[in-house]
Amino acid sequence: VLKALERTRQLDIPDEKTMPVLMKLLEEAGGNWSYIKLDNYTALVDAIYSVED
């Protein structure tokens, strides 16, 4: 979780936006981090930006 938060902080995305999206992605992935961690957490960042749209 810390590495995911560090990555999104680099992009000026607050933890308050990151955590709900991260928890949803983890739930959808059955707790499997490998998809979320791919390409420096690209799936997480993309999911956060899609929620903002």
Score class of each variant (00 low, 15 high):
Val1Met: 12
Val1Glu: 06
Val1Asn: 05
Val1Trp: 15
Val1Arg: 06
Val1Ser: 05
Leu2Gln: 15
Leu2Met: 12
Leu2Asp: 15
Leu2Tyr: 08
Lys3Pro: 05
Lys3Trp: 02
Ala4Ile: 04
Ala4Tyr: 05
Ala4Gln: 04
Leu5Pro: 03
Glu6Val: 07
Glu6Lys: 06
Arg7Trp: 09
Arg7Pro: 02
Arg7Met: 07
Arg7Leu: 08
Thr8Lys: 01
Thr8Ala: 07
Thr8Asn: 01
Thr8His: 02
Arg9Ala: 03
Arg9Pro: 02
Arg9Val: 02
Gln10Gly: 10
Gln10Trp: 07
Gln10Ser: 13
Gln10Pro: 02
Gln10Arg: 08
Leu11Ser: 04
Asp12Asn: 15
Asp12His: 14
Asp12Ser: 14
Asp12Met: 14
Ile13Phe: 07
Ile13Ala: 01
Ile13Met: 04
Ile13Pro: 01
Ile13Ser: 02
Ile13Tyr: 04
Pro14Glu: 07
Asp15His: 03
Glu16Met: 08
Glu16Leu: 07
Lys17His: 08
Lys17Cys: 10
Lys17Pro: 01
Thr18Met: 06
Met19Asn: 02
Met19Asp: 00
Met19Cys: 13
Met19Ile: 15
Pro20Ile: 11
Pro20Phe: 10
Pro20Thr: 10
Val21Asn: 02
Val21Cys: 07
Val21Ile: 13
Val21His: 05
Val21Thr: 06
Val21Pro: 01
Leu22Trp: 00
Leu22Lys: 00
Met23Ser: 07
Met23Leu: 13
Met23Pro: 00
Met23Ala: 08
Met23Gln: 10
Met23Asp: 06
Lys24Thr: 07
Lys24Gly: 07
Leu25Thr: 01
Leu25Asn: 01
Leu25Gln: 01
Leu25Met: 14
Leu26Val: 05
Leu26Thr: 00
Glu27Phe: 10
Glu27Leu: 11
Glu27Ala: 12
Glu27Pro: 00
Glu28Cys: 10
Glu28Ser: 10
Glu28Val: 09
Glu28Met: 13
Glu28Ile: 12
Ala29Trp: 15
Ala29Glu: 09
Ala29Phe: 15
Gly30Asn: 13
Gly30Ala: 09
Gly30Trp: 05
Gly31Phe: 12
Gly31Trp: 14
Gly31Cys: 10
Gly31Ser: 05
Gly31Asn: 09
Asn32Tyr: 05
Asn32Val: 07
Asn32Ile: 07
Asn32Cys: 08
Trp33His: 04
Trp33Arg: 02
Trp33Met: 05
Ser34Arg: 10
Ser34Thr: 14
Ser34Cys: 11
Tyr35Leu: 12
Tyr35Pro: 10
Ile36Pro: 00
Leu38Tyr: 12
Leu38Ala: 15
Leu38Thr: 09
Asp39Cys: 08
Asp39Asn: 14
Asp39Ser: 08
Asp39His: 09
Asp39Leu: 06
Asn40Ser: 06
Asn40Pro: 01
Asn40Ala: 07
Tyr41Cys: 03
Tyr41Phe: 10
Tyr41Glu: 00
Thr42Glu: 11
Ala43Asn: 09
Ala43Leu: 14
Leu44Arg: 00
Leu44Ile: 03
Leu44His: 00
Leu44Ser: 01
Leu44Cys: 03
Val45His: 01
Val45Met: 07
Val45Cys: 02
Val45Lys: 02
Val45Pro: 01
Val45Ala: 03
Asp46Ser: 12
Asp46Lys: 14
Ala47Asp: 02
Ala47Thr: 06
Ala47Met: 10
Ile48Ala: 03
Ile48Thr: 02
Ile48Val: 08
Tyr49Arg: 15
Ser50Arg: 14
Ser50Pro: 05
Ser50His: 12
Val51Tyr: 14
Glu52Leu: 13
Glu52Pro: 11
Glu52Ala: 12
Glu52Arg: 10
Glu52His: 12
Asp53Arg: 14
Asp53Lys: 13
Asp53Val: 13
Asp53Glu: 14
Asp53Ser: 14
Asp53Ile: 14
